[in-house]
Design a protein around this nucleic acid. Sequence first.
DNA 1: TTGAAAGCGTTACCAA
DNA 2: TTGGTAACGCTTTCAA
Lengths: 340, 340
Amino acid sequence: MPTIFDVAQAAGVGVGTVSRVLNDSPAVSDSTRSRVLAVISALDYRPSSLARGLSLGTSNIIGAVVPTVTHPSSMERLHGVLDELGGSGYDLALYQVEGEEQRSSRIRDIVRPDRCSAGLLVSLRATPDEIFLMVRAKRPVVAIDGYIEGLPGCHIDNVAGGRMATEHLLALGHRVIAFVGDVEDDLGFNPGAARFEGYRAALRGCHVPLRDDLIKTGPSCRERADQLTGHLFDLAEPPTGIVATSDTQAFGVMAAVRSRGMEVPTDVSVVGFDDLELAGHLGLTTVRQPLYESGVLGARMVLQQLDGHRDGLDVVELPLEVVVRETTAPPNNGSALYGA
Amino acid sequence: MPTIFDVAQAAGVGVGTVSRVLNDSPAVSDSTRSRVLAVISALDYRPSSLARGLSLGTSNIIGAVVPTVTHPSSMERLHGVLDELGGSGYDLALYQVEGEEQRSSRIRDIVRPDRCSAGLLVSLRATPDEIFLMVRAKRPVVAIDGYIEGLPGCHIDNVAGGRMATEHLLALGHRVIAFVGDVEDDLGFNPGAARFEGYRAALRGCHVPLRDDLIKTGPSCRERADQLTGHLFDLAEPPTGIVATSDTQAFGVMAAVRSRGMEVPTDVSVVGFDDLELAGHLGLTTVRQPLYESGVLGARMVLQQLDGHRDGLDVVELPLEVVVRETTAPPNNGSALYGA
DNA sequence: TTGAAAGCGTTACCAA
DNA sequence: TTGGTAACGCTTTCAA
């Protein structure tokens, strides 16, 4: 691999000049610049990012910290990040965290200038200590999905989302609506709790009493969804609609409903949350949150800070939208009367 | 951030000695070593990976090139990679490619010592030129899912997989079996073609004639799956079983079947391929391929080469297995007689 | 507008 | 077993 020295020699100039050409310094005559450029492309020279980083005091890597990379929603966000980072010259390093200590250690990593020039925290919360670490490092870090005090980022209004899902069902005439929630992950991140608040608020708004027996929470694996949902239909007054805390959870609910010989939406309506690609495939009515867009925006914010544009950076709230598909319909019995 | 020089000074030794301690050189006395170690932890010193990389001539990053990161199967593999890379000291850089030129450019990137110390090619094929590039670079590159001549890696026998799926249906008594295939991606990678070969071989083995009208290929989006599958049931002799080229495709098929008022597996059996997490949730019978494990193995192979263990490295074939769930059952009519 | 040279923080070689 | 120092390839400052 040719070095900047080789280029300088071949072009008959000093390395300083080559460096200036590389970094678009205006202090280079046009003739010299074109001569150097010619040699660069002739030699297929590319500056060493290691040497450049050492000299500049920072790497060209943006570190993304993500819990459970396999979750479809994380991937969607990451996809946005990668697309936006595309031609930026920055590479993305992916750090997976599965526990509190790992998170701390990864946060420490991404604020080290020799590791990363900036960081992205996806669907994560942070302790005051960790926040202090990031702020002190004075390194751009943005939070994608999940508000972290002191950091710019984007997130959604989960309370509003839960309300929208519930109100959709309410508007269709449902009055017995169950809530199937997720459990908090290992890192204490739990959007489901806020969505539940929205569910509660929506019911209150329609003067529908909250019934504890209609509220189920558990991990979204199939067996649990089965149990969770199953119990719901053993009730004296079973739900005609179900708000699930995520699309994944909703899929489990749908499978459980069907396994009991019932039909969606004929016997029961189901609303999800996220609008994963699969939700479209399976016709799930859901609250869409801009997953891909959150990644694009987060990456853009980081890039802006890296360019020195510290202005206009803030915490932005992304819009939500109910996408009505085929898993919701008006209740097919007189249950609307009960709750009224 | 403290440098190696700070540590040396505080410990009253030269930087060379600190470096030796850092790199577990045996040529350090126990007393010196413990003294240096004490200072290191007192100062919370961590060597600059940039400086270390420049000196060593290579970074501590492993670059993974992946098409469409959002595909669940890629994520599963990446998850395995990340888990295996965990405490190795290597970071993972994620490169997404969406076209031939991008692939070439990314391959060029990962074999550059200032960018990556090794590479991982996931679900990708490579042109002879690209292979030459990698071999010449003498840098560890392993192929995960997809055999690339001259590179170590792991893959599955797609022909066998297609055969297994089809034979499962055949064994249940099905004789009119459709094949719903995926289209080749933008990068010319198409495991579906080999799976189709397996389908064909299985039918031949049972003396079931191949019927062109039972073979459909198209992108796995919902609308297309609907059309694709729909046409199948307009046939004079519709299929009692469907082999899908992927779980994703199978989900589309199932949705399409249901949208026509038919039941799975009562009216038609469906077999997928991959065994995504969701396949378990939805009770899909499928051919399981070790996705997570392929990532673990690929990462392990790279790490081995990085450690200088060039031996024992080869192309390994991962096992396949039919996971029978609830979408397959014997045909409920006499159609078995037709094909015999 | 340009060249020379000092750093950036390591590793590794050469003496001691 | 150690310390001193060249080298890694770049950016940037200082003179010219």
